[in-house]
Computed example of a mutant assay.
Amino acid sequence: MKQVYRSKTAFVLGWVWVAFVAVNAWDLTVRFNGKPSLVAAAILGGLTAIVYLVALRPATVFTESGLVGRNPLRTTFVPWASVGDVTVSHSINVQHDEQLLRLWTPMSTARERARAQRRAAPRTQRPSRFRTEPAMTRGEQAAAEAFAGKTHADWVGEQITGRAESARRREEAAGPARTTWALDAFAVLAVAVALVLAAIVVP
């Protein structure tokens, strides 16, 4: 079963931007007035390409056979048995075949790490007859313990390590990683460049 991890905030904001651009593209088409419309379209196209590359395309994907890291311009597939050390700093870094795959998402910001550390810190109880603590279910308590002191990136990094160790225990083949250029990313860039050229060339 395929599992996809990414920055939810960036993904949602990216699609909000796409909706905004779609409305404006319709308006520019209906009220086309030559050069000004082309310049506006070029600006929207350039910004949309950037949003697609940094917010919509990046993802960390778990498949049955391996880890897929979708970065802005390239896609890397690493068989689970070939995954080496996994470290988490600002990003998730995966060692494989004496190379390093840096996953673009999910990332760990300083604010998120500070928030995770506050969650892990023991709470001091102040006596008050009016203070009540909501009772957590077993599932909620297990989730709180699992995420205590960890960011989303830390948790995903642990899942990658667990999958890799399971694959090695099953003695799966440790094949080479494969990296390919992202054709969809270059297609989006090509459209943005074409709009910019049109805005420059057309009088």
Rank of each mutant, 00 (worst) to 15 (best):
residue 137 T to I: 09
residue 174 A to L: 06
residue 101 L to G: 00
residue 166 S to W: 10
residue 125 Q to S: 14
residue 84 G to F: 01
residue 186 F to I: 02
residue 23 V to G: 07
residue 187 A to P: 04
residue 6 R to H: 05
residue 31 R to K: 11
residue 32 F to D: 15
residue 165 E to W: 00
residue 147 F to T: 07
residue 195 L to A: 13
residue 29 T to K: 00
residue 64 E to S: 08
residue 180 T to R: 11
residue 93 N to T: 05
residue 22 A to I: 05
residue 186 F to C: 04
residue 191 V to H: 03
residue 27 D to F: 06
residue 63 T to E: 11
residue 143 A to L: 14
residue 200 I to F: 13
residue 2 K to R: 10
residue 62 F to W: 04
residue 78 V to Q: 01
residue 201 V to R: 06
residue 145 E to G: 07
residue 125 Q to R: 14
residue 10 A to P: 10
residue 70 R to W: 08
residue 141 Q to C: 05
residue 24 N to M: 08
residue 179 T to F: 05
residue 107 M to V: 13
residue 159 Q to E: 15
residue 81 A to N: 06
residue 137 T to Y: 12
residue 186 F to M: 04
residue 34 G to L: 08
residue 197 L to E: 09
residue 113 R to S: 06
residue 188 V to E: 15
residue 48 T to Q: 09
residue 141 Q to V: 02
residue 78 V to H: 00
residue 24 N to G: 08
residue 185 A to E: 00
residue 156 V to S: 01
residue 146 A to E: 15
residue 65 S to V: 04
residue 56 L to W: 02
residue 122 P to K: 15
residue 82 S to N: 03
residue 194 A to M: 14
residue 42 A to V: 00
residue 147 F to E: 14
residue 91 S to H: 15
residue 12 V to C: 02
residue 196 V to Q: 13
residue 41 A to L: 06
residue 114 A to V: 05
residue 109 T to G: 10
residue 112 E to K: 14
residue 75 T to C: 03
residue 135 A to D: 15
residue 139 G to R: 10
residue 143 A to R: 12
residue 27 D to P: 01
residue 22 A to K: 04
residue 54 V to T: 10
residue 174 A to G: 09
residue 149 G to W: 11
residue 103 L to T: 01
residue 61 V to E: 12
residue 90 H to P: 09
residue 65 S to L: 02
residue 116 A to R: 01
residue 128 S to P: 07
residue 42 A to R: 03
residue 6 R to K: 03
residue 124 T to R: 15
residue 200 I to Y: 15
residue 44 L to V: 03
residue 170 R to Q: 11
residue 171 E to M: 09
residue 188 V to A: 08
residue 121 A to K: 06
residue 183 L to P: 07
residue 3 Q to W: 11
residue 2 K to L: 04
residue 106 P to A: 05
residue 166 S to A: 15
residue 11 F to L: 13
residue 113 R to C: 03
residue 79 P to K: 06
residue 13 L to V: 05
residue 106 P to S: 06
residue 111 R to E: 12
residue 58 P to L: 02
residue 21 V to P: 09
residue 174 A to Y: 11
residue 130 F to G: 11
residue 26 W to K: 05
residue 193 V to E: 11
residue 156 V to R: 01
residue 11 F to E: 13
residue 103 L to N: 01
residue 83 V to F: 00
residue 151 T to Y: 02
residue 188 V to W: 12
residue 178 R to W: 08
residue 148 A to I: 03
residue 34 G to Y: 15
residue 71 N to T: 05
residue 173 A to H: 14
residue 134 P to Q: 14
residue 104 W to F: 05
residue 79 P to G: 04
residue 29 T to L: 02
residue 85 D to T: 13
residue 164 A to H: 03
residue 88 V to M: 04
residue 90 H to E: 12
residue 53 L to K: 04
residue 116 A to Q: 02
residue 12 V to D: 09
residue 71 N to I: 03
residue 59 A to G: 04
residue 160 I to R: 01
residue 82 S to G: 03
residue 43 I to M: 03
residue 162 G to A: 07
residue 167 A to Y: 09
residue 166 S to P: 12
residue 24 N to W: 13
residue 105 T to W: 13
residue 45 G to A: 04
residue 1 M to Y: 04
residue 87 T to M: 12
residue 108 S to V: 01
residue 16 V to I: 13
residue 44 L to T: 10
residue 143 A to F: 15
residue 12 V to Y: 12
residue 4 V to I: 15
residue 100 L to W: 13
residue 184 D to W: 12
residue 8 K to F: 12
residue 185 A to D: 03
residue 81 A to E: 08
residue 31 R to W: 13
residue 178 R to Q: 08
residue 155 W to G: 04
residue 24 N to T: 09
residue 158 E to I: 01
